[in-house]
Amino acid sequence: MLMIDCPWCGNRDESEFMYGGEGNIVRPQDPESISDDSWSDYLFMRKNTKGLYMEQWLHSYGCRRWFLAERETVSYEILNTHKIGEINPESKS
């Protein structure tokens, strides 16, 4: 059971949160102008890193804020959490 540091509420038990998969994925600006392949890449392809992974979590039973967490996928250690907008997303595609 993880202990997650919500950027607003502080350390809370994992059960209060909802996992949102890889974080910082940017929706293409003009979806109609890109190929099926590029769109599929945005839709389905995720990094699934062994090591440090940028994830998005929702403090669903707390302040209802989405935020980003840098989690080490081997040790499950969470190194940092960030409010949305605190760090620049990498552009996908």
Binding site: C9, R12, S15, E16, Y61, G62, C63
Partner: peptide, 10 residues
Amino acid sequence: CAQTIIAKTG
């Protein structure tokens, strides 16, 4: 105050 879970309810 805190928003949290008790047993199985928010």
